[in-house]
Computed example of a mutant assay.
Amino acid sequence: MAETPNVDASNSDQYAMWDGGSGSFWTARADRFNEGMAGYHGTLVKAAGFQPDSQVLDIGCGSGQLTRDAARAAYEGSALGVDLSKAQLDLARTLAERDQLANATFLQVDAQVHDFGEARFDIAVSRHGTMFFGDRPAAFANIARAIKPGGRLVQLTWQPVDRNEGLTTFRTIAAGGKEVPPPPADAPTPFSLSDPDRVHPLLSEAGFTDIEMTGLTVPMYYGSDVDDAYEFIADGFSYEKLDDAVRERAIDDLKADIAAHLTDQGVFYNAAHWLIEARRV
C-alpha cells in the first residue's frame, strides 16, 4: 500500500480533490489537456531554457508532459515531477518509462511543505500547478529554498477568468445565463495567481527577484467536433448535475455555443495566460 503523503492542513481539501475525482478526470483526459495547452507549452519550455545538466523541479506535474520534456533536454541532469494525484503520477511514470527517460522521477508530495533539500534545483517550472496552495507564501518560500541562488522559477498560470472566453462562457451557461462572480482572490483556485499586484509581492517576499509576467493569448482547443467538446466541457463543469430547472436549457445553450466555435481544426475558445518568470535571490 502506498504511503500517504505529508499534506499541510491548508491543502487537505485539495488533496482530497486531486487524489480523488479531479485526479481521475484529468488522468483520463491527459491527452486532451495537453492538446488544449499546445499553443502555450512550447513558449513555456523555451522560457525555461533547460540545459543538458539542469536539475529541474516540476510543480503540480500532472501526467508529466513538462517533466518529460525537461528530462529530454536535461539528459545529463534530472527532472523531478511532484503532484498530489496518485493516478496522474502513475500515468506520468508509465509515459516516462515508455519514453526511456530514466532521469525523470515522480513523487506524490505537497510542495508547500515537502523537504526538497536546500538549493537543490537549477530551475522550478509549473504548468497550471501552482495556483492551488492553501498557504501561497509558505509554498513559494519552500520552493525558493529548493532552488539554487540565481536559479529560476518559470510557470504558466491563468489570467483573470473574464479574459478567458471559454471558462466565462461555460460558467455563465451553467448558472442559467446569470453573471457569475469571480472566485475569491485568496482561495486556492485556478485564478489565485491571476493578479500581478498580488503575484509580485508574493514572489518577492518568498525570495525571488527579476519578476516578470508576460501576457499570452492563444485560443485553447476543446475537442474535434461539437459532441467531443461537449462531453469534455459538460463533464468538467458538471452540467449533468445541474438542477432540473436549468439543466436542459444549459445543455442546449452549451451545444449551440460550441457549434459557434467549431472550426476546420476543431473547437477553440479564446484564452489568456501569464508566463511568470523570476530568479532566486
Rank of each mutant, 00 (worst) to 15 (best):
residue 4 T to G: 03
residue 8 D to T: 08
residue 11 N to W: 05
residue 14 Q to G: 13
residue 27 T to K: 14
residue 27 T to G: 14
residue 28 A to W: 04
residue 33 F to G: 06
residue 40 Y to N: 08
residue 41 H to M: 13
residue 50 F to C: 01
residue 51 Q to P: 01
residue 55 Q to E: 13
residue 57 L to T: 04
residue 72 R to L: 02
residue 74 A to N: 00
residue 83 D to Q: 03
residue 83 D to M: 05
residue 88 Q to T: 04
residue 90 D to W: 04
residue 90 D to T: 13
residue 98 R to E: 14
residue 99 D to Q: 12
residue 100 Q to G: 05
residue 105 T to N: 14
residue 105 T to Q: 14
residue 111 A to S: 15
residue 112 Q to H: 04
residue 113 V to A: 00
residue 116 F to V: 07
residue 126 S to L: 07
residue 127 R to M: 09
residue 128 H to V: 10
residue 134 G to L: 05
residue 135 D to E: 10
residue 139 A to I: 00
residue 142 N to I: 02
residue 152 R to K: 15
residue 161 V to R: 15
residue 164 N to E: 09
residue 164 N to K: 06
residue 167 L to N: 12
residue 168 T to D: 06
residue 180 V to W: 01
residue 181 P to K: 09
residue 182 P to G: 10
residue 183 P to I: 06
residue 183 P to W: 07
residue 197 D to L: 13
residue 197 D to E: 15
residue 199 V to T: 04
residue 199 V to I: 07
residue 204 S to R: 13
residue 208 F to Y: 06
residue 209 T to N: 11
residue 228 D to P: 00
residue 228 D to C: 03
residue 229 A to G: 12
residue 237 F to E: 06
residue 244 D to E: 14
residue 250 A to H: 02
residue 251 I to H: 12
residue 254 L to D: 08
residue 257 D to M: 08
residue 258 I to H: 03
residue 266 G to M: 10
residue 267 V to N: 05
residue 271 A to S: 15
residue 273 H to Y: 12
residue 277 E to H: 06
